[in-house]
Simulated assay, not measured.
Amino acid sequence: MSSGASVDEKWLEKNILESPAVRQGLNDIAARLLPICQRLAYQEGCDDFADSLRIETGTRPGTKSPTGIKRPYARVIAGSEHASEQEHGSLRYPRHNFFRRAASQL
């Protein structure tokens, strides 16, 4: 049973998806997560991983969304050469799960 209510896509984009307050909220969460993740990496001796962490912001392209909505994002990413191996583990590196552990401390 549908209520028949619909949301104007232009209103949604203007007031929510492109809202400075929404983007600021996403950036605030990423900014809180970054130092926690860096601290965990430094404590475990992964200095190159900690030094390579940065915040990336942007807008998703909306190609996978059934409605084509382009959503903003802000995320903490690691740019070191072995970041994926250090985060998820490999034969050379133990698994650290810095991002998951940092998110649980927010």
Rank of each mutant, 00 (worst) to 15 (best):
D48M: 05
G58T: 11
A83P: 01
I55M: 11
I77K: 10
N27W: 00
G79D: 10
S90I: 03
E13Y: 03
K14P: 00
G58S: 11
S84F: 11
R71E: 09
I16P: 02
G62I: 04
R39H: 05
C46H: 13
S52V: 01
L26T: 12
M1T: 11
E9A: 07
V7A: 09
G79I: 03
H88R: 08
A21F: 01
G79M: 05
R100A: 15
N15C: 00
A78P: 02
D48G: 02
L34Y: 14
D51Y: 07
A31S: 15
G79L: 04
L91S: 14
R60P: 00
A21Y: 00
C46V: 01
A102I: 03
D28S: 15
P61T: 11
F99Y: 08
G45A: 00
A30D: 12
K14L: 06
G89H: 06
G4C: 03
N27I: 05
D48K: 14
F49Q: 01
K64E: 13
E81I: 10
L12W: 05
S80I: 05
V7K: 09
F98W: 09
A21D: 04
W11C: 01
V7S: 03
A30V: 11
R39G: 04
E87P: 03
F49A: 04
F98H: 12
E44I: 00
E87H: 06
Y93C: 05
F49G: 02
D48I: 04
Q105K: 14
R75M: 14
G58N: 12
S2E: 13
A83Q: 07
K70P: 04
L34I: 14
H96P: 02
P35Y: 14
A50G: 05
L40R: 10
A21I: 01
C37E: 15
A103V: 01
N27F: 03
R100Y: 06
D48Y: 02
G68Y: 12
I29V: 13
E9K: 13
R71V: 06
A31N: 12
R100M: 06
D48F: 02
A21G: 00
R54G: 13
V76D: 07
A50F: 08
Y93A: 08
E85D: 14
D47V: 09
M1E: 14
Q38M: 13
T67P: 00
R54H: 15
E81L: 12
L26N: 09
W11A: 14
Q38W: 07
A74V: 14
N97H: 10
L34D: 13
K64P: 02
T63G: 02
F49E: 03
G58Q: 12
A74L: 10
R71L: 07
V7R: 11
V22T: 12
G79P: 00
Q86V: 05
G25F: 02
R92D: 08
S6A: 07
L17C: 04
G45H: 00
T57P: 03
V76H: 07
R71T: 08
S3N: 14
R95N: 03
I36E: 09
L53W: 08
L40M: 10
S52D: 03
S2P: 05
Y73N: 08
D8L: 00
L17Q: 08
H96T: 13
G79S: 11
R60G: 04
E85L: 15
W11L: 11
